[in-house]
Design a binder for these strands. Structure first.
Lengths: 229, 229
DNA sequence: AAAATAGTGTCTATAAGACATTATGTC
DNA sequence: GACATAATGTCTTATAGACACTATTTT
């Protein structure tokens, strides 16, 4: 930021929006958390949970605040800034930029149920998006694209699955997000060679079949990989 | 953006910064355009050209306006939104977010020289950055990382070189930005196989040696590639 | 033993990387 | 003809992708 010449014009200020795209895998579908708007504009239309940036708050803190108050998420999850949207005419109240964040949580981490502050949050598969308020469809599509891309060269799936998981489950998550089937043997060969996960001593029982070995991520913090999928 | 409940609190508004990282290749170095600040804070310290977002202006339009007024760039160049920075304490005048854009121009497109509005713009190799105002060093580093990454899977180099160019020159640009040497035969084999560029009938004369064939990009618009470098 | 999913290896095709010589201009 | 850069191809290695059967548990 460069300071302007000292003119006498009052500096322009604007509201800044914060929107959060919260992804989770539910019932073998990539879902996004939506709420129903209560007031105009777009009353009763689905939208992303969001807020206005408040004084002395960073956009990241604001996004975390949205997660807490709108989705009841308190545990740390993966979160990254997605993009700052400011298409003209996105909001009938006037133009202002909105900083969108993308977050990932295992579905077990999200308490659902309506409360006074939660405005009927609900999960919707991204392939069945309803009409969304503002430019939120664009935001969701951008987030899906980012998620798919990042899946290929980072380890961020760790944030979508429980601490321990079977390789079949991990592969399923990849298939759900990427939208196409993967070869079982190639997936295992490649994933194990990355060194990101390690076998535990546990087995997943409960099915009517041979139990599967449980794995876990060596590290549950974001990492970039040279080569991936 | 979700509208808040109709409280009686006045909505918070803030200034929004716009900063532009303008890259060009000059004298075989990746350079960034800096200006010298005239006023506090950080008077006489180098900084990125920037501005405050004005009323009824998109961030992209604001970035383009900065390009025009601070760097004299009128021709279309490659520009993309980089990231929105809002680290605490970046600006002693208070915290507000700043939307950074990254743009690329061939050095021939940039008229240099000081004018009333240009505050001594000058090109500085990114490997020899001086002290920068605010969090501009972080912004430049982020931009360099983005540029390097994008070089590998997009065709955006077209915006850094003249309309026609030799393969040696193109390779040089890649080497300069990536920071390491590339094999001549492998580079040509791979680049030509991508189908992004086409040989012209022209040759580059002027040296004391065998003239080199001139090529040009088939399309000078951004494109994503499946595989690249 | 039937059902259901777990788990495993080879072969082929493609891409990446190392590497040196000949060609064609200018002076 | 000396100089300077242009232009070109092969071989090796690594990675990606296709592909099918055996193993282990539950009921």
């Amino acid at each position: 930021m460069t300071r302007r010449a000292p003119t006498h014009r009052k500096p322009h200020t604007t509201q800044v929006g914060i929107d959060v795209v919260l992804f989770s895998i539910i019932d073998d579908a990539l879902c996004v958390l939506l709420i129903n708007r209560q007031w105009e504009p777009y009353a009763h239309v689905a939208s992303l949970p969001g807020a206005f940036l408040r004084a002395d708050e960073t956009t990241q803190a604001a996004a975390q605040h949205v997660l807490r108050t709108k989705a009841g998420i308190t545990r740390p999850v993966y979160m990254e800034q997605l993009y700052t949207f400011d298409t003209r005419g996105r909001d009938p109240r006037g133009d202002f930029p909105t900083v969108a964040y993308m977050t990932l949580v295992p579905h077990t981490a999200v308490p659902l149920g309506n409360s006074a502050t939660t405005q009927e949050p609900h999960w919707v598969p991204v392939v069945r998006l309803p009409r969304l308020a503002f430019d939120h469809e664009l935001i969701v599509r951008t987030a899906v694209a980012r998620l798919r891309a990042k899946l290929e060269y980072t380890n961020i799936v760790y944030s979508l699955i429980p601490a321990t998981f079977t390789l079949t489950r991990l592969q399923r998550v990849y298939e759900i997000i990427l939208g196409h089937a993967l070869d079982k043997r190639n997936f295992r060969k490649k994933y194990l060679s990355l060194g990101l996960i390690r076998a535990t001593r546990g087995m997943e029982r409960g099915g009517k079949q041979r139990p599967a070995r449980l794995y876990r991520f060596v590290s549950r913090t974001p990492a970039q990989l040279k080569k991936f999928f």
